[in-house]
Computed example of a mutant assay.
Amino acid sequence: MPDRIEEHHGVTVLVADPGGPPVTTVQDSLDLIGAAFQGAEVVALPAARLTGDFFTLSTGLAGEIMQKFVNYRIRLAVVGDITAWLDASSALRALVLESNRGRQIWFTADLAELAARLKDG
Rank of each mutant, 00 (worst) to 15 (best):
P18Y: 09
P18I: 11
G19L: 10
G19Y: 09
G20L: 09
G20N: 06
G20T: 02
P21M: 06
P21W: 07
P21Y: 05
P21V: 11
P22Q: 02
T24W: 00
T25E: 04
T25L: 02
V26G: 04
Q27Y: 11
D28V: 00
D28G: 03
D28N: 04
L30Y: 00
D31C: 13
D31F: 13
G34F: 06
A35I: 12
A35T: 15
A35H: 15
A36C: 05
F37W: 14
Q38S: 13
Q38M: 12
G39I: 14
G39E: 12
A40I: 14
A40W: 02
A40R: 05
E41T: 04
V42H: 00
V43N: 15
A44Q: 02
A44T: 03
L45G: 02
L45T: 14
A47W: 05
A47Q: 06
R49G: 07
R49F: 09
L50F: 06
L50V: 04
T51L: 15
G52V: 10
G52K: 13
F54T: 11
F54C: 11
F54R: 12
F54I: 10
F55C: 12
F55I: 08
T56H: 13
T56E: 13
T56R: 14
T59N: 09
G60S: 08
G60W: 09
A62G: 11
A62E: 10
G63V: 04
G63H: 11
G63S: 03
I65P: 01
I65T: 01
I65C: 07
M66K: 14
M66P: 07
Q67M: 13
Q67K: 15
Q67V: 12
Q67S: 13
K68W: 00
K68P: 00
K68T: 03
K68G: 06
F69G: 01
F69V: 08
N71C: 07
Y72H: 03
Y72Q: 00
R73S: 03
I74D: 06
I74H: 03
I74Q: 05
I74N: 04
R75C: 09
A77K: 07
V78Q: 02
G80K: 10
D81P: 04
I82L: 04
T83Q: 14
A84F: 10
A84L: 11
A84I: 08
W85C: 07
L86P: 02
L86A: 06
D87E: 15
D87M: 07
A88V: 02
A88K: 10
S89A: 10
S90Y: 06
A91R: 12
A91C: 08
A91K: 08
L92E: 04
L92F: 09
L92I: 08
R93F: 06
R93K: 10
A94R: 13
L95Y: 10
V96P: 02
L97G: 14
E98M: 12
R101A: 09
R101L: 07
R101I: 00
G102E: 04
G102I: 04
R103K: 13
R103G: 07
R103F: 12
Q104E: 15
Q104N: 10
Q104F: 05
Q104A: 12
I105D: 15
I105N: 11
W106I: 14
F107P: 08
T108E: 15
T108A: 14
T108K: 12
A109H: 09
